[in-house]
């Protein structure tokens, strides 16, 4: 990222020769007068013309007053700097830490040094979405002898006019159905992947377990109870056995893909000693995958 907008402007705008004073904008009532004027113009519309005229006068006066506050030169007042220096210290940790853990170099616990990128979840979602097609197609073939049935059924969720469609209709090829089905399926897979990617850093250890079983389980549970409301058409015809099969296919492939990805090193990696970074020493005791913490109070009993 670039470095826009460094705020030196603050100092340049109010230069001061006196180190013990700061120039600040001068207080003024003109903005208040203008605001009152405009409000009275509005109020004049619902009360009496006289109120409106008063508002107009105040607005003109307020505008002029305001102009002269800033033109030709912005009006400033000089505020003396008073008082003493304050120092920011952390009362809670600093002293105690030096006391009890003189050897510990950092007051913080290291975050997971490795984690997954959020894009990992998206990739998993895409791969899982593709994998899901296999059981869905098998189901269509076995039950309706057409590879299009599952796709059309999904699309029917979006087309009110397909609500009463027959099984034969849904078994035929429809370009519309293909496109809508692909869109719904693709978008959902992507989003589930994204959500999963956001959750990954919290469960970095066994993604295949969370993705393969937990996620489909949760997802199916929610859908099972909600589908009747979300898409009654789908609900009437859905075959739960095959539906769950395709969910699990999604989860397993998604988890597998996530597992394949290398973990990225978080910036915290740099904080490890050189020997660890070079791979000479283990960093096992520093790694805390389950508890992504860098609390500043770890190891300090208060």
């Amino acid at each position: 990222m670039t470095e826009p907008g460094k705020g030196d402007a603050v100092q340049d705008e109010y230069p001061t020769s006196d180190p013990n004073a700061v120039l600040l904008p001068q207080p003024t009532a003109w903005p208040l007068v203008l605001a009152l004027g405009i409000s009275l113009i509005m109020a004049g519309m619902v009360t009496n013309v006289a109120v409106g005229i008063l508002g107009l006068l105040l607005s003109v006066a307020g505008s002029f007053g305001w102009f002269f506050q800033v033109l030709p030169h912005e009006a400033h007042e000089s505020v003396p700097v008073t008082g003493e220096e304050i120092r920011s210290v952390s009362t809670r940790t600093l002293m105690e830490r030096e006391h009890r853990h003189p050897e510990s170099a950092t007051p913080r616990k290291i975050l997971p040094v490795e984690t997954f990128r959020i894009t990992t979840g998206i990739r998993g979602g895409i791969a899982g979405g593709i994998a899901m097609i296999v059981p869905a197609t098998i189901f269509s073939l076995l039950k309706y002898h057409s590879i299009w049935y599952a796709m059309n059924l999904l699309a029917a969720g979006g087309f009110v006019s397909w609500a009463g469609a027959s099984d034969t209709f849904l078994s035929q090829f429809h370009l519309q159905g293909l496109l809508a089905g692909l869109l719904i399926h693709g978008l959902t897979s992507l989003l589930v992947g994204l959500l999963y990617g956001a959750m990954l850093p919290m469960f970095p250890r066994y993604p295949i377990v969370t993705a393969g079983f937990m996620a489909p389980l949760l997802f199916t549970g929610i859908l099972y109870s909600a589908l009747g409301i979300v898409s009654p058409i789908l609900n009437q015809r859905i075959d739960w056995f095959w539906f769950i099969m395709s969910q699990i296919a999604f989860g397993l492939v998604c988890g597998f893909v996530v597992n394949l990805q290398t973990r990225v090193r978080t910036p915290q990696f740099q904080a490890l000693p050189f020997a660890v970074r070079a791979g000479l020493h283990s960093d096992q005791d520093e790694r805390t995958h389950q508890t992504p913490t860098n609390t500043d109070e770890k190891g300090i009993s208060k």
């Binding site: 603050v10 904008p25 003024t28 605001a35």
Partner: peptide, 17 residues
């Protein structure tokens, strides 16, 4: 880390209106 808003008078105006 600034000393005021960018438009201090507009700020007062907005509040009052």
């Amino acid at each position: 880390g600034a000393r005021d808003m960018a438009f201090p008078r507009l700020n007062a105006f907005s509040f009052w209106i």
